[in-house]
Amino acid sequence: MARLNDSGQWIVMMGFIVSIAIFLLALVVAESAIVGKTTSESVLEFPKTDIQDLRSELMNLTWLELNPNYQDDIAKISLERKNAVVRYQLDQTGEVPILYIHYNNGITQYNEIYFED
């Protein structure tokens, strides 16, 4: 049997180090993928646009002094199509009209008291 050749140990060791480094980098890559997934999931879950739309529609309607016909429509359609409980009320007894907005879709709850100075 040939005598053991003890040259080239550096090459072997560097090979090991590089392969371990590649493995660690792969872990980092996998981790970043999970971060991207959870981020976009929470963006999808959070009803940002629902609340913005509701607010902007109610602000527009406040100019029309909130016809009571619309009140129920928005609340009922919200419950049926978006599974969200929506309540709002325009209080005109004070000096300035005050608009109360309540939104709850089971995950996110939003309350607002709005009045113009």
Partner: peptide, 30 residues
């Protein structure tokens, strides 16, 4: 053999990209 196994592990652990990209695409679409 070790290198092939390592390469397989790296590629299979990175393939989690597929469901993630679906979510990102859906978020952008929305």
């Amino acid at each position: 053999i070790m290198m092939v196994i390592t390469a397989y592990l790296v590629i299979s652990s990175a393939s989690i990209f597929t469901p993630q990209e679906k979510h990102v695409a859906q978020m952008q679409l929305e």
